[in-house]
């Protein structure tokens, strides 16, 4: 995973350096790569019979996890909002 991180920072650095000279639309490129990756993930998953039979378990775990994550971040966002507003309007 460290290689992946290092490559991201390399990209960031390169982007900063090239920023003034090159104008490219990378988001389409990224979409293609992500789609390709998800397809490979789908293939890996499809071959894993044990996993295919556990789809319902995965769904329940995922639903509980996402609901709690959303609730948690909403609660802290609510507290943060009150704190910002309490300390004077736009918070600047």
């Amino acid at each position: 995973m460290y290689i992946a991180l290092a490559l991201m920072f390399l990209g960031l650095l390169l982007g900063r350096l090239l920023g003034g000279f090159v104008k490219v639309e990378l988001s389409k490129c990224i979409l293609v790569v992500i789609s390709l990756l998800l397809m490979v993930l789908g293939i890996e998953l499809g071959f894993n019979e044990q996993l295919v039979s556990r789809f319902a378990h995965i769904g329940v775990s995922a639903a509980v996890l996402s609901l709690c994550a959303v609730l948690g971040s909403c609660v802290t966002a609510g507290i943060f909002y009150k704190y910002i507003k309490g300390r004077g309007g736009d918070g600047s």
């Binding site: 992946a4 390169l14 982007g15 090159v22 104008k23 790569v33």
Partner: peptide, 15 residues
């Protein structure tokens, strides 16, 4: 492919 993706994400942000 993940390596390629990470590089592109960084590059996109940097640009």
């Amino acid at each position: 492919i993940l390596y390629l993706l990470m590089f592109l994400v960084g590059l996109n942000l940097g640009l």
